[in-house]
């Protein structure tokens, strides 16, 4: 941990920055397909960060994490989605969001800053590792922005992407703070995410079949008070 080179630190920081940017993309694009692409990008930056951190000192765990993430999120997941909810991704375009794009971007920005401030006391507990200073705020921001995606997007697939972005955010922090997580948990996690995607895919299809729309945010049959 102690001898992380500045290069890696900087690259990692760059990956972090790009990670956030791609998360913004998930929050704010109109096109569902573009949103998916931003998610893939985000996952790639997560993988890059994991690999970078795993380089020196060499950590097989982190490399495996990178690999698992690469396989599941960059390849398997889009494939699965395409299979399950093909139509929605390629034909639908999200016309309205809950908030308009500039507003949601501003709020997202505020959340990012908040994430930075909230994570400050935590990273201060470990003053040596500078990667933590990057990864934890960025991860938290990713988590926030993923959650924020859920609040602003009405379509089914972007909501799934929001969830996944949240997990990505957690992982982004995780690669720095918990690099030696047991591998089995990592595998299980990845498996978990795939099941999640699968289940949500099934649900999306049912939604489409039963309700005729994938605009989940507009569903409000179940509520109190007519």
């Amino acid at each position: 941990m102690s001898n992380i080179t500045p290069l890696i630190t900087n690259l990692n920081a760059l990956a972090g920055g790009l990670f956030i940017v791609s998360t913004f993309g998930i929050v704010a694009t109109r096109q569902i397909k573009a949103s998916l692409k931003f998610f893939i990008l985000q996952s790639i930056f997560l993988v890059i960060s994991a690999v970078l951190l795993g380089l020196k000192p060499f950590s097989l765990d982190l490399m495996a994490v990178g690999a698992i993430n690469l396989i599941t999120k960059v390849f398997l997941l889009p494939w699965l989605l395409k299979r399950m909810v093909k139509k929605e991704i390629y034909t639908k375009r999200e016309i309205t969001q809950v908030l308009n794009i500039p507003t949601s971007l501003i709020i997202a920005l505020i959340l990012t800053i908040a994430a930075y401030f909230f994570s400050l006391p935590w990273v201060e507990t470990q003053n040596i590792s500078s990667v933590v200073h990057i990864n934890v705020p960025v991860g938290l921001a990713g988590l926030f922005l993923g959650a924020y995606t859920l609040t602003v997007r009405r379509e089914a697939v972007p909501q799934l992407l929001g969830l996944l972005a949240m997990e990505n955010g957690a992982f982004f922090a995780g690669v720095a703070i918990a690099p030696d997580l047991p591998l089995i948990s990592e595998l299980a996690l990845a498996f978990d995410i795939l099941i999640l995607t699968f289940v949500i895919g099934i649900l999306t299809r049912s939604v489409h079949e039963q309700i005729g729309t994938t605009s989940i945010g507009n569903l409000s049959k179940l509520k109190e008070e007519a």
Partner: peptide, 15 residues
């Protein structure tokens, strides 16, 4: 969504 939030919690716990 909650679980994702909790995941970060678990990671921090681990940290």
């Amino acid at each position: 969504m909650g679980a994702a939030i909790a995941l970060l919690g678990f990671l921090i716990l681990y940290w």
